[in-house]
Amino acid sequence: MAPALKPPPAPPLNIDRIKALHDDIEAYIDARVADEAKRTPGVPAVRIKHDLMVRAGGCQCRAFFQNSEKAS
């Protein structure tokens, strides 16, 4: 029987790139919330963001993908 192959080592994480992506996603979500708040006067932006995040299971990345797919 042939020996099991080892998977290649994972590349090191680029923390600066991850932080930049997180910041970009957060800015995108905040912009979407601001746009929605303009269309729904009287609904606090914090409520809109909360609803958006709940629909995404609390994950900013998932919220980004769900909303960016709707926009395209």
Rank of each mutant, 00 (worst) to 15 (best):
C59E: 11
P12I: 02
A71S: 13
R62M: 11
D16E: 15
P12H: 02
R39I: 00
M53D: 14
M53W: 13
A20L: 09
R55K: 15
C61N: 14
I18S: 01
D35M: 10
H50C: 11
I48N: 06
A45H: 07
N14E: 15
V46F: 10
G58N: 04
T40R: 13
R47Q: 14
V54Q: 12
K70M: 11
K19H: 06
V33F: 00
G58T: 04
R39H: 03
R55G: 15
F65Q: 13
D30N: 07
A34K: 09
E69A: 10
K38E: 12
R17S: 00
A34I: 03
K49R: 14
E69V: 12
G42V: 02
H22P: 00
L13A: 08
R39S: 08
A34N: 11
D30K: 00
A45D: 08
P11N: 04
G58R: 03
K19L: 12
L5H: 08
A34G: 09
E36G: 00
R39F: 03
I15W: 01
P3W: 09
K70I: 12
I48G: 07
H50I: 08
R62Y: 06
G57D: 05
F65T: 10
S72M: 06
V46R: 12
R32I: 01
L13S: 08
D30M: 00
I15L: 05
L5K: 15
S68W: 09
F65D: 13
S72W: 04
